[in-house]
Design a protein around this nucleic acid. Structure first.
Length: 703
DNA sequence: CTAGGGTTAG
């Protein structure tokens, strides 16, 4: 059929008039070529109506396809109106609509279209299923997906494999890796897409080990894989620490010339970083010629997860110099590093940037932000962020509760816990770490015991070793050492107390000068693992505090003779003008060390004049030993505070973060410094915050 | 006429 067509140029406002001289049987290529706008489509439509070609099903269908799919960036309104005018649309027409709706992200409407198809008794064909399954996959509509699976089985379109691949993807996206695997296993032939769909399911459901195993199986059976497979497998390798397989893949990539695929190299960077080889990751990252936001984010996250937070922030600065815009994922790692370092100014800038760039405040980003504020002692800002978050999950609540607990607001923490329950958010084991430490830091022993019991009884949460640790900490801090000891003895058979539990008790013994339980705790630590120098030092201080200096020295001698592992060196950091400065006890690596020691001496003299007396026991031990490690006046937080005093203007609060628990002497000294120098001093130690002001501390000397 | 990938909080 050939028809001459001419369209009056007067009606056309687009730059190029459409001249159709011959109307072909299949107008699709023509429409594809000429139709750039809805307006063009209108003209064709008018023509088809005028010539009554629209009544031919094949022409109508082709036209519908043009409206639904070819004009990719137009909304579906027009296609819908065309579709609705069809009398008795067949499955192909429905397929076009479902495909178009899915393509343009109207997944919900696509599923509704499929339902309508069923209601009007139009039988779906083999082309229907992949499209509607894709829509279900996007929506994570597991129920609908299962129904479609049922129909598919009944109709038996199983030959092509397209539908099964769709099913695997759908189940994968709905977090049902197990069902996805079943579909996969039942397929008679599996192409690379089926394999990759299953891998992606494992990735989305966090089934890392399964992914690694599946890839081993692929290798054993000599099954072909591609670069997409390798990306998934490398991600899994990182999560389970499968370095050997990861390196095998790296060699494969090099041997097969795949190094130019940036996504693949990014996965490699991620794999090395997560397996603890950050420097290897960095050298691969450096070799990448095109680094996108994901590559940068992966590397920053690598530093962050390896506890190399200063390098994470420094790389973030490089990223900005390279003019790569960070996204919300980048910011999660950056905030996490800021939190770890106590980099308040830097994190505040990130918060500002998030607002300015209108980055979506996802649950993850919101939680990272409130965690950051809580870790910097700005708990009011945490609460503010929490309230602004449109969506929160159990972790957001738990982080807030933990934050309130460590900032000494145990009562508020428990209030949020109650609020959480009224909102029917199911608490988990992490929530209870927060709740129990709230009780611990605020001395709410009775409440803590109740909650621990309730955790098992009412919430059916199996306490982990960490929860037992919280209880020991709580009882120990409250001076109930005997009860804490009994509590450990009565731990269930399958929950053997670890060294950390006994260290917690040992630390409490130092506070309450309990020699007997202290000695017992050290023995238990020795039975379990290599003793750290810190353990010996604690027992030595306990002896000294009750006047048993001979024993105190004996323990120290033993420590030296045995050549024990050194404890984690004390490290304190302070942010001045956006730069993080780190101090170690007796640190002379710092380029300004002389000035800092002078400032520290001056500061210590200043508080001595005001009546501060150095902790006698510790000072005596020190005087007789000249033990550098324990030199009380050069504890890292004193150096950091002295640095803060000389580097910031009068009246500015000083914020210091340290990696260990603050010692008695530093605590007393800092109280005095806050009074004498009229400064607010906020010290974050390993477990909580101390807000010092006017000679007092927010922890009420209870920590 | 149908189908595929990476980075994320305690």
């Amino acid at each position: 059929m050939a028809v001459a067509v001419s369209i009056s140029p007067a009606k056309i406002t687009t730059t190029k008039p459409i001249i159709i001289t011959q109307f072909p049987d299949n107008p699709k290529p023509l429409i594809l070529e000429q139709c750039k706008t809805v307006r063009d489509l209108h003209q064709i439509h008018a023509h088809l109506i005028k010539t009554r070609f629209i009544s031919s099903p094949s022409v109508a269908e082709n036209f519908l396809e043009s409206a639904a799919i070819l004009l990719r960036h137009q909304p579906m309104d027009y296609a819908i109106s065309v579709f609705e005018k069809l009398n008795e649309p067949n499955s192909s027409a429905y397929n076009i609509m479902i495909r178009g709706l899915t393509l343009k992200n109207f997944s919900h409407e696509a599923v509704l279209m499929f339902k309508k198809m069923k209601e009007t008794s139009v039988e779906p064909d083999e082309f229907t299923f992949p499209c509607v399954l894709k829509a279900c996959s996007r929506l994570r509509a597991l129920e609908e997906g299962k129904q479609i699976h049922g129909q598919l089985m009944k109709l038996g379109y199983r030959s092509s494999g397209f539908a099964e691949n769709g099913l695997i993807k759908m189940y994968a996206n709905c977090g049902q890796a197990g069902i996805a695997r079943k579909v996969f296993d039942e397929m008679s032939e599996r192409d690379i897409f089926a394999w990759n769909a299953l891998f992606s399911g494992y990735t989305k459901s966090g089934c890392w080990k399964e992914a690694v195993d599946l890839f081993h199986y692929m290798l054993e059976t000599d099954t072909k894989f591609d670069e997409v497979t390798l990306v998934s497998v490398l991600t899994a390798c990182g999560r389970v620490g499968a370095l050997k397989l990861g390196e095998w893949i790296k060699d494969y990539i090099e041997a097969n010339g795949l190094k130019r695929n940036p996504t693949l190299i990014t996965s490699l960077v991620d794999m090395y970083a997560k397996c603890g080889h950050v420097d290897k990751a960095r050298s691969l990252f450096n070799q990448m010629s095109h680094k996108d936001v994901v590559a940068w984010s992966a590397m920053i996250s690598g530093y962050n997860q390896s506890n190399r937070c200063k390098e994470a922030l420094s790389l973030f600065h490089d990223m900005q110099k390279a003019n790569i815009e960070p996204n919300e994922v980048t910011m999660v790692s950056v905030l996490s590093s800021c939190a770890e370092l106590g980099a308040l100014a830097m994190g505040k800038w990130v918060h500002f940037y998030i607002n300015k760039k209108k980055l979506p405040l996802t649950v993850t980003l919101g939680t990272a932000l409130l965690h950051f504020y809580a870790k910097c002692g700005s708990i009011d800002n945490s609460i503010e962020v929490f309230k602004k978050m449109a969506r929160k999950n159990v972790l957001s609540w738990s982080v807030l509760i933990q934050g309130l607990a460590s900032n000494g607001q145990g009562d508020t923490a428990l209030k949020y816990f109650d609020l959480m329950l009224t909102k029917h958010i199911q608490p988990n084991d992490i929530t209870f770490i927060g709740v129990l430490s709230a009780c611990s830091h605020s001395g709410l022993v009775k409440k803590g015991r109740e909650l621990f019991a309730s955790m098992i009884k009412d919430f059916d949460i199996e306490p982990k070793i960490e929860h037992y640790g919280c209880m020991v900490d709580m009882l120990g801090r409250a001076g109930l050492l005997e009860e804490a000891y009994q509590f450990i003895q009565n731990m269930p058979m399958n929950m053997k107390p670890n060294a950390l539990i006994w260290r917690t008790l040992l630390a409490s013994c130092k506070v309450y000068k309990n020699v007997g339980i202290g000695e017992e705790s050290l023995k238990k630590i020795m039975d379990l693992e290599t003793v750290h120098s810190g353990d010996y030092l604690l027992l030595s201080s306990i002896y000294a505090s009750v006047g048993r200096l001979e024993d105190a020295f004996r323990v120290r001698r033993e420590m030296k003779e045995k050549g024990v592992i050194k404890k984690t060196p004390g490290c304190s950091s302070i942010e001045v003008n956006g730069v993080i400065h780190e101090f170690f006890a007796e640190d002379d690596a710092n380029f300004e060390s002389e000035k800092i020691y002078a400032a520290t001496e001056k500061m210590m003299k200043g508080i001595k004049l005001a009546g501060y007396v150095m902790n006698i026991e510790d000072a005596r031990l020190e005087a007789e030993e000249y033990d550098k490690e324990t030199s009380v006046s050069h504890h890292s937080e004193k150096l950091a505070i002295a640095f803060g005093l000389i580097k910031t203007s009068i009246g500015t609060p000083i914020r210091v973060s340290k990696n260990l628990r603050v010692c008695n002497d530093c605590h007393e000294a800092t109280k005095m410094i806050s009074k004498v120098y009229n400064r607010e001093i906020i010290v974050r130690d390993r477990t909580r915050f101390h807000h010092f002001k006017d000679g007092l501390c927010s922890c009420n000397d209870y920590w």
